Every structure is written in C-alpha cells, then in structure tokens.
Amino acid sequence: MSIILDISGDEHITIDTFQPGDAPGVGDLFRKVYGEDYPVKLVYDPEGLVKAFEKHENIPGVARSSKGTVVGYVSIFRSAPVETVYEGGQGLVLVDYRKHGILRELIRYYSEVLAPAYGADAVFGEAVCNHVYSQKAWAMHGAIETALEVDLMPGAVYAKEGTTGRVATLHMTRMYRPMEHTVYAPRQYKEAMRFIYDGFTSGARVAKATDESAAGEPTSIESSHFEFAHVTRMTVRQAGQDFPAVFEEYERDALDKGMVVIQVWLKLSWPFIAGLTDWLSGKGYFFGGILPRWFGEDGLLMQKVAVRPNWEGIMLYSDRAERILAAVREDWQRVTT
C-alpha cells in the first residue's frame, strides 16, 4: 500500500515503504535540513540504512517526489528492551514541502501500514512537553498516554523555540497486540497504575505486589549513557538480593559521568517489585508511569533528577496527561521531602 498526494499540476508525492534505492536520498534530505548535525547518524549512512531495514531494526517510510527526490522521512525503530516494541520518530519533511500534510501522512503510514506489517506488538513515542503539537499528533493516530519522563531533554535543543530549562516528554503508546498478563502494583502506585490501565487496552490485570524478597538469581542491569542529554537509562533484566549493591555501582558510574537524569526500567511481572520500588524511593527515585510490553510484559518507569525538575515548563494536551503528571509530581514530593 502507498499513499499518493497531488501537490501541484505537475508534481505528486508517493508515500511508501523504504527501498534500498532511497538510502542516498534520505541522507541528502537530512543534510539539506540539518547539515551533518542530526544526532542519529544512521540516516547519513546508505549501507547502514539498508542493513538496519533488512534486520527490521529501523523501518522507514519515505515520501518520494515524482521529480525524483526523497522529500520526507519517518521510521519505527527498536529502542526498547524487547524487539517487538518499536519507537516511532525521526520525522522530517523538506522545508519547501511542509504545507502539504506530508508529515501527517507519513505518521499515518507507519501507524497503519508499517507497524502491523512488521509485527510490532506496540509502537511508542516520546512527545515533547514544551508544546502540545506532537502530543496531539500521536493521539490522532491512536496512541495513549502511559508515562511522563521528567526533564528528559536539555532545553538547548529547543532554544530556537524559546524554551528555557529541561524538557519533559510524554510517553505515548499505540497497542497492536494486547496480551493477557498480570502486573504487580506497589501499594503507593496502585491508584495511579489503575488509572493508567483503565484508559488503555493492554490485556494487563493489576494485582497487589507481595512482600516477598527479590529472586535468588544475581542482579543483571544494562546501562546506557546519553551524554548529549546527560541521561542514563538502566534496564533491570533481573533483580536479586544483591540488587542494592549492584545498582549503587551503576548509579555511581552515571553520576561520575555527569548525568542529570537517571531512568530505571523494572519488570511489572515481578511479584516482589514493591521491595525494589521502596528501596529506590529511599534513594530519591520517583514514579514515572507504565511502559507497555517493554519486556514482552509491561515495565515500570522510575526516575531521578539531580536538580529540581522543570515542572513549570511542562505543557500537556489532555486531562489524562495532567492526571499522570499529578501522580508523578506527588511521588517526587514524597521522596524528596
């Protein structure tokens, strides 16, 4: 399936799935807009784009002009711990073509065509909160708010938009393959989690987390540092009784590298998760929300910010998002006072 847009008497745009022959044109498109400064360097690498597409790691949709150039691009790509959850983003349209609804149709294309065709369980986006436009765009295509990532991006990235202070993002997910499974809610997050799940079709059943100790297996954590944003993300694959000691080692490394924001991803399928969240709360980590299908089953976002979060800079488009913000801020106040 492709989408055809007639934009003038002698030119039309075809929105379609990426083909290897598009790769040089994708690089040209990004150079025309960003020079060599776009942070995702894959777009400049024709061979890398083709290989990532063949492995289903990065699946683009492109807008081709009938005059022979690539004038728009968007992709779904793997960034979650499980391969069947994709992130949607990297949307770009050449400046001279931005009044024809091309980006809107590119987003519709990956939502309605690419994600189902390539077996995505879910596709999520991180909509910036220094304005509400991207939040509304995600909502138009069936994405639901499930978490708030506080102070995720440095304000300097959006300085031309008049932004001051770090920028939060709203985690929004469109579910393609709901799966029945049980998630365990720590007592302090039970109300917020039930609210999030009540408006989201995921197949999850919320149960009370138990008082049992973490599993007997050794703790396994994967840590990724994003130096340009001063953000560290920790994926907790397994949590054992050595969790505090192992975690503190990873946290110390992040702080030594000057990270401002630390995110922790935990498995909501663990009945013993309450012990982990209690311990993390004691170290200043607070509730972020739910990450649908993050580990195959759902994940929980905990987060810590080294300075006072830029709460005043958060703009949200919906009452549901405001409710999530209230839960996040209330827990931040609880763990920091």
Rank of each mutant, 00 (worst) to 15 (best):
Val40Pro: 00
Val40Gln: 14
Val26Tyr: 02
Asp16Cys: 13
Ser8Asp: 11
Val33Phe: 02
Tyr34Ala: 01
Gly21Ser: 15
Tyr34Ile: 00
Gly27Ala: 15
Lys41Asp: 01
Asp37Lys: 09
Asp6Lys: 11
Ser8Phe: 02
Ala23Phe: 00
Asp6Tyr: 10
Gly21Asp: 15
Thr17Cys: 11
Thr17Arg: 14
His12Asn: 10
Tyr34Cys: 02
Glu11Asp: 06
Ile15Ala: 06
Gly35Thr: 01
Lys32His: 12
Phe30Cys: 01
Tyr34Gly: 01
Asp28His: 13
Asp28Lys: 12
Tyr34Asn: 05
Lys32Ala: 13
Ile13Arg: 07
Ser8Asn: 10
Leu29Arg: 04
Pro24Tyr: 09
Pro20Phe: 00
Asp22Cys: 08
Gly35Phe: 02
Gly21Met: 12
Asp22Lys: 04
Val33Cys: 10
Leu42Glu: 05
Thr17Met: 10
His12Ile: 01
Thr17Lys: 15
Tyr34Met: 03
Ile7Cys: 04
Ile7Gly: 03
Leu29Phe: 02
Gly25Ala: 04
Asp28Ser: 10
Arg31Cys: 06
Gln19Val: 13
Gly9Ser: 15
Leu42Ser: 04
Asp6Ala: 13
Gly9Ala: 15
Leu42Lys: 10
Thr14Tyr: 05
Asp28Pro: 01
Ile15Val: 05
Ser8Leu: 08
Asp6Ile: 13
Asp10Ala: 15
Glu36Pro: 09
Thr17Ile: 15
Leu42Asp: 06
Gly27Leu: 06
Gly25Ile: 06
Lys32Pro: 07
Phe18Cys: 10
Val40Ile: 12
Asp6Phe: 12
Lys32Gln: 13
Thr17Trp: 01
Gly25Asn: 04
His12Pro: 03
Asp22Ala: 09
Arg31Met: 13
Val26Asn: 04
Pro20Arg: 10
Thr14Asp: 12
Val40Ser: 09
Asp22Thr: 04
Pro20Thr: 05
Gly27Gln: 06
Asp22His: 14
Val33Thr: 15
Ala23Trp: 03
Phe18Glu: 02
Val40Leu: 13
Phe18Tyr: 07
His12Glu: 13
Thr14Met: 11
Arg31Asn: 05
Asp6Gly: 14
Gly21Arg: 13
Asp22Gln: 05
Phe18Ile: 02
Val33Tyr: 07
Val40His: 14
Tyr38Lys: 09
Leu42Gly: 00
His12Trp: 11
Glu36Ile: 00
Leu29Cys: 07
Val26Trp: 02
Ser8Met: 09
Glu36Trp: 01
Pro24Trp: 08
Leu42Cys: 04
Gly21Ala: 11
Asp37Ile: 00
Ile7Gln: 08
Gly9Thr: 11
Asp28Glu: 15
Gly25Asp: 03
Tyr38Phe: 11
Ile13Asp: 03
Glu36Thr: 05
Gly21Ile: 09
Phe18Ser: 09
Ser8Val: 05
Thr14Asn: 12
Thr14Phe: 07
Val26Asp: 00
Leu29Tyr: 00
Leu42His: 09
Pro20His: 10
